[in-house]
Write a protein that binds this DNA or RNA. Structure first.
Ligand code: SF4
Ligand code: SF4
Lengths: 160, 160
DNA sequence: CTAAACTAGGACTGTTCCAGTCGTATTTAG
DNA sequence: CTAAATACGACTGGAACAGTCCTAGTTTAG
């Protein structure tokens, strides 16, 4: 049904959130709780984004994830490919795979052209655009003005 | 993985073939044999295209399928929607469906915009373009010049 | 130095969706 | 009447996906 996977959905939500947090690393737990995403599943998504060089991780007790590159250089297309693998409309996508109809197929080339256009549509949107576009709660900026940031990070808690 | 279904694939192949045959109705069996598509499955695909007003059918012993409208008025987008249902990148596509993250989601609107662009890419290609684009065997045009067409329809046969 | 809060990553399971099959009814030319 | 075609719904097997579990490694507060 031409649908992108839930993992990709989670990845985009996470990237948008991480980008909105500036230099403060966001942990998987924090992202999961804020967006009601299963933690274990989200963790694997974030890890793959690190492998692909989209995020960088900081281990240890105050660790978390940060953007590895400026938000306007990360496209939706790249995220989709990182999580779901190369985008192919049909099984004859990467040439090594061919279907039963391959030799008698009369629509391969036009379909490949359409695929390229779809990739273009995905590549035209960057994470920074996603950040500017969201109009949800202002995230209640938990970062203090002067010094001594954080420490009140779970101030939004008591949710159950 | 953002892939369109095999049924849609079959639908596009069939429409391209039917369009290339002019006014001669093409039967499901003929299309299936020419392209190595399972007959029963193809039949259902063609039937749905009839329901959606893309094809028209002619029952009876010399029946088959014809385009219900000119080839340049049938877009790939329409075919995809006819077979796979309305195109939705995410589960929050048609508003009645909502996901666990709905209230906390920060990427709905941008994603909908991307979806619209993808639909645009699909709508930009018509069946008539598919027909002009194919560069497979010239189908050995079985249609006679003067009168008395057909009758040599299985001249390419002995394929098994 | 130890415990806590993290990331890293593989193995496993349940479910859903999809491709394909079967069976049966209906239409129509000859 | 019969053969060849469309029409349509029910069924099945398999693959992909969403989610869970378990274990290991890393960093820092105390
Ligand atoms: S039928 Fe044609 S377009 Fe579809 S997968 Fe096979 S070769 Fe590719
Ligand atoms: S997470 Fe957001 S974009 Fe994805 S399905 Fe839910 S509401 Fe739609």
């Amino acid at each position: 049904m031409l649908r992108l996977s839930k993992k990709t959905d989670y990845a985009l939500i996470s990237l948008t959130y991480v980008a909105s947090q500036g230099d403060r690393p966001a942990s998987a737990r924090e992202i999961a709780e804020r967006h009601d995403i299963p933690l274990e599943l989200l963790a694997k998504v974030l890890q793959r984004l690190v492998q692909r060089g989209v995020l960088k991780s900081q281990q240890g007790i105050h660790g978390g994830y940060l953007l590895a590159r400026p938000a306007d250089t990360v496209t939706v297309a790249e995220v989709v490919e990182a999580i779901d693998g190369p985008l192919q409309l049909t099984v004859c996508g990467t040439s090594d795979e061919r279907c039963e109809q391959f030799s008698k197929c009369n629509i391969r080339d036009p379909l490949h052209r359409i695929r390229d256009r779809i990739i273009g549509a995905l590549a035209a949107c960057t994470v920074s655009e996603l950040v500017n576009d969201r109009h949800d709660e202002p995230v209640a900026m938990p970062i203090a003005i002067g010094g001594m940031a954080i420490a009140g990070r779970r101030s939004h808690g008591s949710d159950h």
